[in-house]
Design a protein around this nucleic acid. Structure first.
Length: 414
DNA sequence: TCTGGGGTCCTAGGACCC
DNA sequence: TCTGGGGTCCTAGGACCC
């Protein structure tokens, strides 16, 4: 029996690195990606029209200190990270830490193109790959020829080289007995590093790490653990399983205990079906349900159209339609409603979502509005055509959505 | 200086069925 | 009238991840 060897591969500063391929003159400079200022990027390009992108002077690019807006940072280059700037940080905070950083917008099309490119490169070498977003994958090395050599290091090197050749981008890889440890290991030697761990390394290499390094322990669990004087993964491992279960619940407590001991038997899953599709948007300024009714209405309609077109383009239908809103105080409210047939059209989505909107408090200003469709089935599949069997009770507890005002127009919101 | 957008999974209560 | 237990579906919220 071959040893189970699982790799986690993470592209280094992916969004930023993709931009640096176009603008190599920015290498070594603090650059952050984020916000929605594509116009600025276009402006720079127009101003230097005729000049190859790589020859536009670095001084021509917009700086973080001049940024206005509510965005967050998607990726920061390593020079920018030196100033404490990192992903998910608000632009305004980042501007204080590193005003001289260059800001570039996310180019989703380009990012997706490179995402397909590097994943395709991996799949040619090792076929069992699990997608974990645009810039990350798990790979099962176990049965790949050569996957056991040096505990997986040889194959990791091969993959790194192939990706660099195909894309010009670097990545970091961790190889370990399972996904959980591989994920942590991939962070050990960033950027452009490889780290190989064995079961026996858990005590020395994993236990000293802060609890947050476990994929699945977030900010809330971290705070709760800290209150119980548990700070490192080793601290968790030292607790009785029962004690963890008493404090964190049957499922989460037991999982936490396993995780701290490096136990994880989740398989590498190569294919999965989407559960829901959604679109949401944060407004440039907080909107008032009454005063900004027209504007909200047209945004709402647009979101419904976008979700519908996403569903149609990808070939899905759904029967739970919902809305999400975020108030100015950052609290979130969601409402949804399940209908008895599958749909993917903007009109029905708009109609049912409109009913949902009527059930939510609108006394505060809104910051964000979102529309979601869940309970998905593949369009044209038998399930998608199935209606409730005769005798099946109507969905419990509510009326079927009432007929709603006309779809077109923006004054029929709420 | 407030903190994006796209997801998944879990929990918990109520309705309703057998 | 009072007693169940097990299971599914729906809804709302929340934690977490990339």
């Amino acid at each position: 029996m071959p040893l189970r060897r699982i790799a986690h591969l993470d592209m280094d500063a992916f969004f930023a690195s993709v931009e640096l391929l176009r603008y190599p003159q920015l290498k070594g400079l603090p650059v952050v990606i984020g916000g929605g200022r594509r116009e600025v990027d276009e402006m720079v390009r127009k101003q230097y029209a005729g000049l190859p992108l790589g020859e536009i002077p670095a001084s021509a690019f917009p700086l973080l200190k001049d940024y206005v807006g509510r965005g967050v940072i998607t990726t920061a280059t390593y020079p920018a990270r030196q100033f404490g700037v990192g992903s998910a940080m608000g632009m305004m905070k980042a501007a204080r830490l590193c005003p001289q950083a260059i800001v570039l917008p996310v180019d989703f099309e380009e990012v997706r193109r490179y995402s397909r490119l590097f994943k395709g490169t991996i799949a040619e070498i090792a076929p069992v790959v699990e997608d974990r977003g645009v810039d990350e994958v798990y790979i099962d090395f176990t049965d790949v020829p050569g996957g056991q050599r040096e505990g997986g290091r040889a194959l990791a090197r091969l993959i790194q080289r192939a990706i660099l050749e195909k894309t010009g981008l670097t990545c970091s890889i961790g190889v370990a007995p399972n996904k959980l440890i591989a994920k942590m290991a991939s962070e050990f030697n960033k950027p452009n590093g490889i780290s190989v761990l064995y079961e026996a390394d858990v005590q020395a290499k994993i236990w000293p790490l802060p609890v947050r390094k476990i994929n699945g322990i977030g900010p809330k669990a971290e705070v709760k653990l800290a209150k119980l004087h548990l700070h490192t993964i080793g601290d968790i491992a030292a607790q009785e399983r029962e004690w963890l279960v008493d404090n964190f619940g049957k499922s989460y407590g037991a999982w936490m205990h396993d995780a701290a001991w490096g136990r994880d038997d989740r398989p590498v899953v190569t294919e999965s079906e989407p559960v829901s599709m959604s679109r949401e948007t944060t407004f440039d300024r907080d909107l008032h349900a009454v005063r900004d009714r027209a504007e909200l209405g047209s945004i709402f309609t647009d979101l419904c159209k976008q979700v519908a077109s996403d569903l149609q383009r990808k070939g899905y239908v759904g029967r739970t339609i919902g809305i999400k809103l975020r108030y100015d105080d950052f609290r979130i409210a969601t409402r949804d409603h399940t209908i008895d047939h599958f749909i993917a059209d903007a009109k029905t989505i708009r109609q049912v979502a409109g009913q949902c909107l009527k059930r939510v408090p609108l006394d505060r200003r809104l910051r964000l509005l979102g529309v979601r469709v869940g309970k998905l089935a593949k369009a044209g599949s038998p399930e998608a055509h199935a209606l409730p069997a005769v005798g099946t009770p109507a969905p419990v507890g509510h009326r079927v959505a009432e007929p709603s005002p006309p779809f077109e127009g923006t004054l029929d919101l709420f």
